[in-house]
Write a protein that binds this DNA or RNA. Sequence first.
DNA 1: AACCTCATGTAACATGTTACATGATTGA
DNA 2: TCAATCATGTAACATGTTACATGAGGTT
Lengths: 180, 180
Amino acid sequence: MKTYNNSTYALLGILTLDCRTGYEIKQRMDQSLNHFWKISYGQIYPNLKTLVTDGLATVKVMSQDGKPDGKEYFLTTKGEEVLKNWLKEPLQHIANERNEVLLKLFFSRHQPADQTQSLIRHYKEELQKKIDTYEAIEEMIGTNYSQNPDATYWLYTLDYGKRTTKAAIEWCEDTIEKIK
Amino acid sequence: MKTYNNSTYALLGILTLDCRTGYEIKQRMDQSLNHFWKISYGQIYPNLKTLVTDGLATVKVMSQDGKPDGKEYFLTTKGEEVLKNWLKEPLQHIANERNEVLLKLFFSRHQPADQTQSLIRHYKEELQKKIDTYEAIEEMIGTNYSQNPDATYWLYTLDYGKRTTKAAIEWCEDTIEKIK
DNA sequence: AACCTCATGTAACATGTTACATGATTGA
DNA sequence: TCAATCATGTAACATGTTACATGAGGTT
């Protein structure tokens, strides 16, 4: 069986959530998956085409005069199978995130302490914003998707984000102190 | 001033640690930066050339008959300046790590609960291995680099890894319970 | 009139990984 | 002798981002 990259599987998954057009998909990804998987139009549109040629999705073209064709995509049974198959496969890559702050910190002997502190302070502020975003999404899910059977899983991913980010914030606070 | 990508700055930084050859650099990166910044030979060798043509490093070629030339790289003053300059610049990207587990979890309604549990259980095991690695590196730094002025910064990055990974492990435990 | 959002798409570019080629030395 | 490690490097490929082109319709 042909394999795809994770962004393609993300596309298959998002098609199960009543997202039909490339534009809708992008919106939805930005709202809900953005904190652990983002994707650009440059990936979405060409990949949707591939899905169709591989029989994982079908497309319904809505010709509109003047406007470019609107295209709605639908998962096929084969597409669902490929999605389910990917879900049960073992993990390929354990997140080894590249972290710019840590990279700079690693070499921070080469700069004065106060610069390193402000580096971490800035990072902490960004992390705080992340937490706020997570909580906003959480609330949004509570109001708009409380009946949705997917919702519990979405909340798990948010919980992950919140917990690890909070741990990172605490590290920031302690490390700023230590550098003094 | 010309800008470089973070992998190139990582190279500049590593050259301050008495790593001289491409091979040495790779070894060192794998040992110490690997948990937040990895790099392959396909990046190292071409990038080292660029550093030389841009005057950020010099190279000393050691012709050996039969063997391919051994090449030792040294930072120039300009190279040091570029490094320091990068250190004090604001962060470009706040880590938005792509996380395969979360991506799968997000769509896990489409598979039975026990499969999702074993997904997370597997993840947890990998995270535990990470913790072990962090602690091994920590000990190594204590024994081999206790006098090194860089060492405190290295320990900060390890602390970050340990804390966020521990938070992730706790999330795994709790989430496995919740899915039951 | 200018700007924003909706909407689709491509081309150029940046970045990074993998497989391969080459060949010496060291140790089991 | 066979495998591993030391050591340098490239080419093909995979992946992803950015800038741009196009144009409708609504808002300021």
